[in-house]
Design a protein around this nucleic acid. Structure first.
Length: 418
DNA sequence: TCTGGGGTCCTAGGACCC
DNA sequence: TCTGGGGTCCTAGGACCC
């Protein structure tokens, strides 16, 4: 599919807007949504932003003043947000099937229409999403994803829509965009770039390629090319299985006992395994991590990685492995604040059954096979078993390829064709 | 008292093998 | 002047995203 522009559709203050839709009494009032244990602020309505509530702020710090100002706090309700998100995505598919669901509240659209038609389309998307879901959105349209992000940010501050096509518009927009507001530039790169007097997106776009390659990563190089209007990030419309599945929680109270740690860990593993099966995948390895509060005087944290003897999505097997690993990194006398599990080496169950297995499995299989060959000393038997062994070698080879493909992004793949 | 949870990708260094 | 070199795997850590 050939498209000349990307639209980034983003729901404004998504979690807070969802709450305001389902609880009409919250409309036009300051609303914040709180994360796990009601610890920190994860979303703010426009009214809450006006009260200077910061993203990620611990709620206990602002609670008194915020509630006195008439502010309301909600515990996060992810089921509700997921449901509304699906409705938004469904609405967007009315316009094109080239939709990449980028996160719960964002989607990229690939658009083939001529540029002069796009402002009207943006207005229509805006209208229909509002009508069918009640959610306010912002739309940015431009020839690359990174520029669409820039346009979206401008849209949020103005009418809700922004198209950046020709060079002079883009130059003006980039000059007005601070370098830390660029998609892909976080706090560390911001600090680094500031020391080199690179403060806005236009300056970054003018930076020498060699210098970027030398001092930053391939991701930053892509960002720079994208700012210049050269598309490096393709639209990914196919839902892909996750590469890792992660479950962990901060405990409300510190935990010391090993058994008391196994309990939440088992719950996390069960949840991760359930997600694995929902994706029709199996996992070939798992990591367990354990940590005290990083604010402790003598913090302790450790992680252990283990290839499983056989890739699986079975809850029982995974819990067993996880607890065995936890025992290896558990040290008594610490007050633990967090533990978690990461399932990795994930592959679709049907592919994996034949293509991916671990070293131990391979060794065992080979041993049995060699043993059988010794027993079966007929021409037919030897032939059949040689065939089986070749199959095994082939599968082993496939596994190597599978694992080596985990990271395929390299410098020489710039840019990616749209 | 109370400071989130779940991801992706890249890079570097050491172990090990041939 | 020149201690071998190259490939793969694992681990740790750093950067970014929402």
């Amino acid at each position: 599919m050939k498209y000349s522009n990307f639209a980034l559709v983003d729901c404004n203050n998504f979690y807070a807007s969802c709450e305001q839709i389902f609880q009409p009494r919250l409309r036009k009032r300051p609303v914040v949504v709180l994360g796990n244990n009601d610890g920190i602020v994860v979303a703010r309505s426009a009214e809450a932003k006006e009260l200077d509530v910061a993203m990620g702020q611990p709620y206990f710090e602002i609670r008194r003043a915020y509630e006195q100002a008439g502010g309301i706090a909600c515990s996060a309700n992810y089921a509700l947000y997921g449901d509304l998100s699906n409705r938004v995505m469904k609405t967007l598919r009315q316009f094109t099937d080239q939709v990449e669901v980028y996160s719960i509240d964002e989607a990229f659209l690939g658009l083939t229409d001529p540029p002069q038609a796009l402002p009207d389309i943006a207005r229509e998307i805006h209208r229909l999403v509002k009508k069918w879901t009640g959610l306010p959105i912002s739309i940015g349209i431009s020839p690359t994803k990174t520029l669409a992000k820039v346009a979206n940010k401008i849209a949020k501050k103005s009418t809700g829509q922004c198209c950046l096509f020709d060079l002079s518009d883009r130059t003006r927009a980039l000059t007005q965009t601070a370098v830390e507001d660029i998609w892909g530039i976080g706090p560390q790169y911001h600090k680094f770039l500031a020391t080199h007097q690179i403060n806005n997106a236009y300056q970054l776009a003018q930076t020498d390629d060699k210098w970027i390659r030398h001092t930053m990563t391939v991701m930053a190089q892509r960002t720079v090319l994208e700012l210049r209007g050269i598309s490096c990030l393709a639209l990914n419309t196919e839902p892909t299985p996750p590469k890792t599945i992660h479950r962990s929680r901060q405990f409300g109270l510190p935990v010391v006992d090993f058994e008391a740690l196994c309990q939440p860990l088992a719950t996390y593993v069960a949840s991760a395994a359930s997600e694995l099966r929902r994706q029709h995948c199996v996992s070939g390895a798992l990591q367990v991590h354990l940590a005290t509060s990083p604010r402790d005087d003598h913090p302790y944290q450790n992680t252990i990685y283990q290839l499983l003897p056989w890739p699986t999505a079975a809850t029982g097997e995974l819990i067993q492995s996880a607890c065995k690993n936890l025992a290896q990194i558990y040290q008594p006398d610490y007050a633990y604040r967090r533990c978690g599990v990461i399932l990795s080496e994930i592959a679709p169950e049907n592919v994996l059954q034949t293509n991916l297995f671990t070293d131990q499995y391979y060794d065992n299989k080979k041993r049995t096979l060699m043993h059988t060959i010794d027993q079966l000393n007929t021409e037919w038997g030897r032939g059949a078993l040689r065939h089986a062994r070749e199959g095994l070698e082939q599968n082993w080879h496939m596994r190597q390829i599978w694992r080596s493909q985990r990271y395929t992004t390299r410098w020489d793949e710039l840019p990616v064709a749209v």
